[in-house]
Every structure is written in C-alpha cells, then in structure tokens.
Design a binder for these strands. Structure first.
Lengths: 155, 155
DNA sequence: TAAAATTTGGTCAAGATTAGTCAGATAATG
DNA sequence: CATTATCTGACTAATCTTGACCAAATTTTA
C-alpha cells in the first residue's frame, strides 16, 4: 500500500465527484483521457471497486451520448436469512425447494405476497421450460439467487 | 451533467409538447428542421423511444397534410393495451425492451419499484446466462409474459 | 378524370461514437 | 518464486447519425 496505483487514484477521483450526490454520469473516454490510461482501465476500476458489495450500482449506455452511471445504494443489513438461503440453494434447485425458499422469505416478511407470487411463476417448471432437467434446476438457482441478492439493497 | 444525444433532446421535446394531452400530431420535416437533423432521425427517435413498450401508440399519414400522431396510452384503463404489450413481446425480447416494458408498468403503477427491480434482475442477460443468444431472448420473453399474466389474473 | 407532379412520411444500410470483453503483459505482494 | 493485482490493446457490441432510395396521399395539369 505504499504506492497508490493509478486505479486507486481513479477510484478516489470518482468517489470525490460522487460526493453527496446519489449518482454520477461519466464519459469513459474522458476519464481515461484525464488520467492518461486506456479506456478499459476505467472498466477495471469499476469492476474491482464499484461492485454491489461495495454499495454501488453501475449502468451504462454506448453510442453517441453514451455514459457510465455510478449510483450509490443503501445496503440493507440484518438480512442473514438471505445468506443462509443462498448457501442452501447452491447452483441447482427444484421447483418444490424454490417454493419453500420463497415461503420462508414471506414468513420472515422479507418479501410481500405479490413479490413471492411473481418469483414463483418465474421459477415454475412451465415458465422455464428448459428441455434438460439439470439445466432447468441450474437456471432456476441462478434466477433465485439473483433475485435474493437484489433484495440486499435499495436504490 | 452530460452531453445528451440529439435523439434524447428530441425525445424530451416531444414529451414536453405532449404534456397533459393524450396525443399530439407533428410534422416530421418540421421537427427535423427545428433540430437541424435529417427527417429519418425523427423516425429513429420514435422507433426507439415511443414504442408500445414505452406506453405510446404512433400512427402517421403521408402526402399533403401528412402527420405523425403520438398517443400516450394508459395501461390501467385499457386492458387491451396489456394484451398488445404481451403480443408485442411475442416469443422473444431483448434486455433493453424488457427494461422498457417494466419501466412503463412502474410508471403506470401496475407494479411497485421493488417488484420491478426483482423482475429486472430475473430478466438480465447476466442472470439468464444462456449461451445461445436467441434462446436467451426467448427465455426472457417466457419469463416476462408469465409474470405479466400473473399480475393480470391475480387481483 | 387520368396522368403527372408534389408533398409527406418510411426503410434500410453504411458510417460514426461510445462502451464492454478478454487474454496476455507487467508490476506488486507475500 | 508464486500468486494476485494492475495495465494494455485488439476485437466486439450497442447506439446514434446520415443519406439514398421507396411508398403513399394529395394537388395540379392536360
């Protein structure tokens, strides 16, 4: 930690202009130019320092008038349930087990009835309709884990 | 804080003159002239920002006295529009179009912010992570239509 | 009134502008 | 020395802009 890498400097710069605002929009090439690095370095900084685990959401648009938007979000704690459930899900889960997971969330008042219903249809065998059985269970797990992770924060 | 593309500016302009009215009629060449762009740019703006997924219907007429009519439709008051929306989704939809659909549903207060967020992660490219591109868009369409139908036949 | 001219809008593809990905090169760390 | 972090650049993808050519509706002309 003696010498700061240019990535560290860019990180600080971005956080500084973020300041009190909840979000900023930057031009990748402009920032890259400002620090005299290749554009993809900005992607590196974002990927390693502005992740959701760090409390940031990043969106972008290409083409003319393109931008990278960095938004600070509130991480919701006291949701240990999520960790436990996500661990239990692993990389594959059946429709029945998914139903149980969602029931738990509902009972723990982490989600509403409607939210649970939405999640259930999305995870149903009929909706996924993947030929392969294992592939279906794996896709279901990805979907469920992604949704659970989304519950960790709010914009 | 950013350079908006001219398309963004035209979009805002149209929405502004739309104001409270349910519809407007514009002259393609007049708008193009006003912003000093080629006429087909107006078609581009309409095709990318005033689709049914965004909650707009567009009709036009050529020849003398021709026009382009943009109408804002209300999902809550008009169940047919929800049908149209589902129909427009068909059996395949991109992440971006799905985002537009969900934004519209949120703006029309058909779904809550959290519900929309949950739907969005479920439909994201990263979550679906299907190798094949078409397969991914088809799966996304199944998921979205299933969730929309769930919302409709529920309450 | 039929044909021609004029006035609108539509389509599509090429080119311009941004940003994203990924794998290899280089540097820092333990 | 091995591993991890950082940096770079070639290639890819998404979005916007422009213009040539097409189609439809109306108006003018013969």
């Amino acid at each position: 930690m003696e010498e700061k890498s240019i990535s560290d400097v860019i990180e600080e710069y971005l956080k500084q202009i973020l300041g009190n605002s909840s979000q900023i929009e930057i031009s990748r090439s402009a920032i890259a130019n400002h620090f005299d690095v290749v554009p993809s370095q900005i992607n590196y900084v974002i990927k390693t320092r502005f992740t959701i685990q760090h409390g940031y959401l990043v969106q972008s648009k290409r083409g003319g008038g393109g931008y990278i938007r960095i938004e600070r979000v509130n991480l919701l704690d006291d949701l240990d349930v999520l960790d436990t459930l996500i661990q239990a899900i692993g990389n594959s889960i059946s429709e029945r087990d998914a139903y149980d997971v969602i029931s738990t969330l509902y009972n723990e008042k982490v989600i509403s009835r409607r939210e649970g219903d939405l999640m259930l249809v999305a995870l149903s065998k009929q909706t996924l309709a993947v030929g392969n059985r294992n592939a279906e269970a794996q896709l279901r797990a990805r979907l469920l884990v992604a949704m659970l992770n989304r519950l960790r924060y709010e914009s």
